[in-house]
Design a protein around this nucleic acid. Structure first.
Lengths: 192, 192
DNA sequence: AATGTCCTGACGAACGTTCGGAAGGGAGAG
DNA sequence: CTCTCCCTTCCGAACGTTCGTCAGGACATT
């Protein structure tokens, strides 16, 4: 399907050049068609972009859901640390996260409201999935009672964002170094 | 000086629309001149942009330097926490950080090398300023000997980035919440 | 015959940029 | 004091390019 190839290529372009920086002509060239042919599959640039945004958010959530489901029997520290590592590995070469972060932080102005709405939905879902984990670990005694579940969640998401930032800016090896340090301090800060 | 007014306005535009999204015509309109007049003061868009980048990095470093200098007699935990708070306060309404982050993470491709070079210089300087603080605190016994000074520094910069991210995406009140949680866990993780 | 896909060709709009000239003020000479 | 020259600042008009978009036709598949 050509529509899928367009999406695939467009994701790369949006991820590395942003909404304004990505041109339909360049995308079409990479696909191997003329830019006018894109209009056979999408109404225009906005529809292509928003369709990609939905895909990206869905994939992002699916990954988290899948990971938590398939590792739910792990100890909470291994689960969380593994989550960081897997997230990094999984998206090392993928443009999904790059697209996601770029759009989340610097959305094209005329699509601001739609994007923010979708973004918050993602964040809320993430929160809902993580909170019970921490509550259980606190009840278990694995995590100190001095630490609230919400503080642990918020701080963990901050560690995650810190990883993203370094992943984007400095690449994998710098990001790995940051994960090691952040996780070491983080776990030392919440464990019993 | 018109050049300064152009810079001032251009900073806003670059910060909120990115390199490609900011147009010289819009900037000129906000300044109250025609876009051609910009060429009296700058060779072109690139020179304006790079000139702004230098200013932004210099201001960013100056702020850190100034803060550390004027609070060097504080206890390390108050110093670091205060640093987070002050950074947030200082740049709440300022476009400096927004410009900085946007450019750092998503640089315009044709200026990539120049930007990355300047960016790493900033990071290195920051590192050089922070490391001795942690070394001293570890020697003091304020921070646990189990924590290396480099791990504490790297993790602290991650906390800082986490704050930036939330500052950009969610605004001040969400960022404040994140700082509270992150700092609580961070300090609990490195203290003796 | 109908449908879906890709093409050629062209559109107006916006982009960064260049050029030539009009205004204005300051400096120096008469 | 005035005239002239220079220099800075700004703008009108236009440049070539690229942008997203639309209309219409060719060709294949069904």
């Amino acid at each position: 399907m050509t529509a899928d190839r367009i999406k695939e290529i467009a994701l790369k372009h949006f991820a590395s050049n942003g909404y304004e920086g990505a041109s339909l002509a360049d995308i079409a060239t990479d696909v191997g068609i003329k830019k006018q042919s894109i209009y056979t599959h999408f109404k225009g640039k906005d529809e292509l972009f928003l369709s990609l945004l939905d895909d990206v958010l869905a994939r992002e959530l699916a990954f988290v859901l899948d990971y938590l489901e398939s590792h739910k029997d792990l100890a909470v520290d291994q689960l969380l640390y593994g989550f960081l590592i897997q997230y990094q590995d999984c998206y090392e070469k993928d443009d999904n996260t790059k697209f996601f972060l770029r759009v989340a932080f610097f959305p094209p102005t005329h699509l601001y409201e739609v994007i923010v709405k979708k973004g918050y939905h993602y964040l809320d879902t993430l929160d809902t999935m993580l909170i019970p984990l921490f509550e259980q670990a606190i009840a278990n005694g694995t995590i100190s009672k001095e630490v609230s579940s919400s503080a642990a969640t918020v701080a963990f998401l901050a560690v995650l964002d810190g990883m993203f930032v370094e992943l984007l800016f400095g690449g994998v090896e710098r990001s790995m170094k940051r994960i090691e340090a952040s996780w070491f301090v983080y776990w030392r800060g919440i464990k019993k």
